[in-house]
């Protein structure tokens, strides 16, 4: 059974050959650079690059695009009013409020930034085997306890999601139908409360099991990943791409000033 965090791949997936650190750093660097871009041309290049990276990841394209669209709902919420709140040259008037060209421009820029970052994150990160993601973060210097917290999450999100589904089936079997009522919200409250109680009891069993196996206050993160030839190839393509975006942006800003 596929887990909550795992995405089944349809093809290839050669990113798994990469050192996990390279993927995390690449995705983070790309996000920081893209957020600072200010022109449509540069952002189009970034978006195309992200789209290519996504195709190469071998993720199911329809499902990935559905996720991007789901997130775009938040974007629309955020930017829908910008044309009316940023003053400038009027394009049209709706209900007596003028919509400005500058506002549409700002809204368009935000939408492109968001989509480029999300596409790249889905390409490089969502294709991770979740435990490998935790290890990569550890090797990048994330505090050990935080990494273990991530690894426990990765392990138990699936277990608890199945438990949640079982409890929901039990509720349905007893005739529970969700509706807009206080009863519904109270029932869901009991569901979450029950899950928390079981979680705490489960964690007590986990700790006993760990102690039984000689847990003495230290957890180990084993890794034998090395920066290899595939990483070299990836960096040789990715670094010029991001550097190019930065240079382009710098030139555009100089030209504008």
């Amino acid at each position: 059974m596929a887990g909550v965090l795992e995405t089944t791949r349809t093809r290839g997936g050669w990113y798994d050959e990469l050192d996990g650190r390279v993927r995390v750093v690449a995705a983070a660097l790309f996000a920081v650079v893209v957020v600072a871009l200010t022109g449509f041309a540069q952002l189009t290049a970034a978006l195309v690059g992200a789209a290519i990276a996504m195709v190469l990841a071998g993720l199911p394209i329809a499902r990935t695009l559905r996720r991007v669209v789901a997130m775009d709902a938040f974007v629309v919420f955020m930017i829908a009013m910008l044309p009316f709140t940023i003053p400038g040259e009027t394009v049209f008037t709706a209900f007596g409020f003028p919509a400005s060209f500058e506002g549409f421009r700002a809204a368009g820029l935000i939408a492109m930034k968001t989509n480029a970052v999300v596409l790249m994150a889905l390409a490089l990160l969502s294709s991770f085997e979740p435990v490998a993601f935790g290890r990569a973060l550890a090797r990048l210097g994330m505090p050990e306890r935080l990494v273990h917290l991530i690894l426990f999450n990765v392990r138990y999100i699936d277990v608890l999601d199945r438990e949640q589904k079982r409890l929901r089936i039990a509720m349905r079997a007893r005739g529970f139908r969700p509706a807009n009522s206080r009863h519904t919200y109270v029932t869901y409250g009991y569901l979450v409360g029950m899950m928390l109680i079981r979680a705490l009891e489960r964690s007590e069993r986990i700790l006993s099991a760990m102690k039984c196996r000689g847990f003495s206050g230290r957890l180990h993160l084993d890794t034998d990943e090395r920066f290899g030839r595939v990483d070299g190839v990836f960096v040789a393509i990715f670094a010029p791409f991001v550097t190019g975006l930065v240079l382009w942006e710098t030139l555009a800003r100089v030209a504008a000033s």
Binding site: R145, L149, N153, Y156, L160, Q164, V192, S203, L207
Partner: peptide, 18 residues
């Protein structure tokens, strides 16, 4: 502390699922 990591981990996974 490290011996509370299991409790913190399982509880935070619960909040994720919720």
């Amino acid at each position: 502390p490290i011996d509370k990591i299991p409790a913190a981990g399982v509880l935070s996974a619960t909040f994720f699922v919720a």
